[in-house]
Design a protein around this nucleic acid. Structure first.
Length: 554
RNA sequence: UGGGGUGUGGCCAAGCGGUUAAGGCAGCGGCUUUUGAUGCCGCCACUCGGAGGUUCGAAUCCUCCCACCCCAGCCA
């Protein structure tokens, strides 16, 4: 039974009544991606739904590749999809399935339909077929080949299959109703000739089944009880049912449609994502700005954050636009509770503690996390340190009273209170060094003179730190609806979505950070070592997401 | 204009004829804080696309209207 702490969605309600009525005795779902691109956040919702349903009801969820169109499908994509599903934390029941496993069975069923007088080989070309189909408001008209003899169709189908027919010359069509108000019932194409090698079946076939002729039968073969798909397939449902009713299939699965996930400031269309990759607007399918599962992973988003986000979304028939901030909430929520803390200075400014000896070296202890159970780390503290340029102001102002400025104090995070004395500028007028004095006896306690610092600043020892590059990301699109209406989504690309900071200084302890392991760089945000650009010589961190900030300096 | 689907606060969304219309995100106040983070407290729809109707009583039932989404690939 499903978890009853949350209201049941309409699919769970259906499952419950199917179970009660005995129509179904085991829940079987499936996630059926076409291997023609990488999975994105929209797929994550479907994955969480389908695998989640199976878990809740003690059933099975199959991973099935819908590989019925060899022109667009590649093995690279199936490998990537397998990796993404597993990374998200799901395991399918039994072997991985492929629509192509059923090509033989599908072909026999096509012959069956022909013999039943319910399918025929049509020789209309694409343009003619469009004309015969009619329009949304006018009925179509029958193909001149509609009543051709069964034997003839059988023979023609065989030659299509054997490669004796050129592409575009013939199709196999279901004989349903050319006057149906539902256009997808106007003698839909079941098989088309494609003399294209398939990533699994090679050149064994010259014809490939169309989605509508394949999907429901695949479900029936696998014993899928609840075939969940997105809303745009709703008008295909009568056709799904028609094949199930008219074929000697081993089961009668049913299709249910829910609203797909749309996220603002992003696009979730494999076609458009592929275009971003192919045209080089991003660094591949796993560019950290991409809403792909692999992009989110490379960016440092934990799988559990994605799952929690998906679980928070309603499964309903409304197709809404979810705020990016909603996803961000779950990312921060997870990272805040689990990411170890560290200090990284992104725009280093040297601070010299003039009242400390040159060789001062002190090992400070700092907690890994506000949750003290996560242990401690050691921070070397020396006479020279780096703080962020942003945390020093030449002149004090009340609005910026948490910054360090001459005569003012600040606490070094996990360390002492310091007070700035003066500063040094270079020829360009930039502050390049701050001289300060350490206020004694302020480790873990406020200054004895009662002058308590307002701000806390992160820092790193100038002698004991490591250089790194930090990649800061902003949304890929500056338009909340980059592909609405007739807009060209490429025009909405945010030119400042990637900012690379070099010469940043981080704790030595992060030298051997594991790629993907999240850290909170205190007062900045969450980061992880990049799996692609990091090397033995170069340490690169991706910003997963900034800390929430309700404060605006300007 | 044919068919299918949906309309509850800025966003997501519960609600399935009967207390003052859940909750989350965002936002706004305040408290705590060695992260301007986190946490905590408070505020945020006299109203449920609109208009009628049924009823003692409707966001929930009926009627009409309006808006938006999907369908005319030999894509999925």
């Amino acid at each position: 039974m499903a978890d009853d702490s949350k209201p049941l969605n309409f699919i769970q309600q259906t499952i419950n009544s199917d179970l009660e009525a005995g129509v179904v005795d085991k829940v079987v779902t499936r996630f059926p991606p076409e291997p023609n691109g990488y999975l994105h956040i929209g797929h994550a919702k479907s994955i969480c739904l389908n695998f989640g349903l199976a878990q809740q009801y003690g059933g099975d969820c199959h991973l099935r590749f819908d590989d019925t169109n060899p022109e667009k499908e590649e093995d690279e994509y199936v490998q990537a999809i397998i990796e993404d599903v597993q990374w998200l934390g799901f395991q399918w029941s039994g072997d991985i399935r492929y629509a192509s496993d059923y090509f033989g069975q599908l072909y026999e069923w096509a012959q069956y339909l022909i013999r039943e007088g319910k399918a025929y080989v049509c020789e209309l070309n694409a343009e003619q077929m469009r004309e015969y189909r009619g329009t949304l408001t006018e009925p179509g008209k029958n193909s001149p080949f509609r009543d051709r003899p069964v034997e003839e169709s059988l023979i023609l189908l065989e030659s299509m299959k054997n490669g004796d027919v050129d592409e575009g010359l013939m199709t196999l069509r279901a004989k349903i109703d050319m006057a149906s108000p539902n256009v997808s019932l106007r003698d839909p194409v079941m098989y088309r000739v494609k003399k294209v090698p398939h990533h699994r079946t090679g050149d064994a076939w010259n014809i490939y089944p169309a989605y509508d002729f394949a999907h429901g039968q695949e479900d029936a073969i696998e014993g899928v009880s609840h075939s969940v798909c997105t809303l745009e397939f709703a008008s295909n449902r009568p056709l799904y049912d028609w094949f199930i009713e008219n074929l000697p299939v081993p089961a009668t699965p049913h299709q249910y449609e829910f609203g797909r996930l749309n996220l603002n400031y992003s696009v979730t269309s494999k076609r458009k994502l592929k275009q971003l990759v192919d045209e080089g607007h991003v660094d591949g399918w796993n560019d950290p700005r991409m809403p792909t599962i692999s992009g989110l992973r490379r960016r440092g988003v934990p799988a559990v954050a994605i799952r929690n986000f998906c679980d928070s979304l309603a499964v309903a028939k409304t197709d809404g636009m979810v705020d990016m901030s909603q996803l961000e909430h779950f990312i921060r929520d997870e990272l805040n509770t689990n990411a170890p803390r560290a200090m990284t200075v992104m725009r280093p400014l040297k601070v010299v503690m003039t009242n400390l000896p040159e060789d001062h070296l002190e090992q400070l202890q700092a907690p890994m996390h506000p949750n003290l159970d996560m242990g401690n780390r050691t921070l070397p503290f020396t006479r020279e340190i780096y703080i962020d340029q942003n945390d020093f102001k030449e002149e004090y102002s009340k609005k910026l009273n948490k910054k360090l400025s001459p005569g003012k104090r600040v606490r070094l995070r996990n360390g002492y209170v310091i007070e700035a004395i003066d500063f040094v500028k270079n020829d360009s007028g930039e502050v390049v060094q701050v001289n300060a004095s350490l206020v004694p006896d302020t480790l873990g306690t406020d200054p004895a003179d009662g002058v308590k610092p307002k701000g806390v600043v992160h820092w790193v020892s100038a002698q004991h730190c490591v250089d790194c590059d930090v990649y800061l990301y902003d949304r890929l699109f500056s338009d909340p609806l980059p592909d609405a209406g007739d807009k060209n989504f490429l025009d909405a690309i945010n030119p400042d979505s990637l900012q690379i900071l070099t010469g940043c200084k981080t704790e030595v302890g992060l030298t051997d950070a594991e790629a993907g392991q999240p850290y909170q760089f205190e007062r900045e945000g969450y980061f992880c070592k990049d799996s692609k650009n990091s090397s033995a010589e170069r340490l690169v961190f991706n910003q997963t997401i900034a800390l929430r900030s309700t404060w605006v300096e300007a």
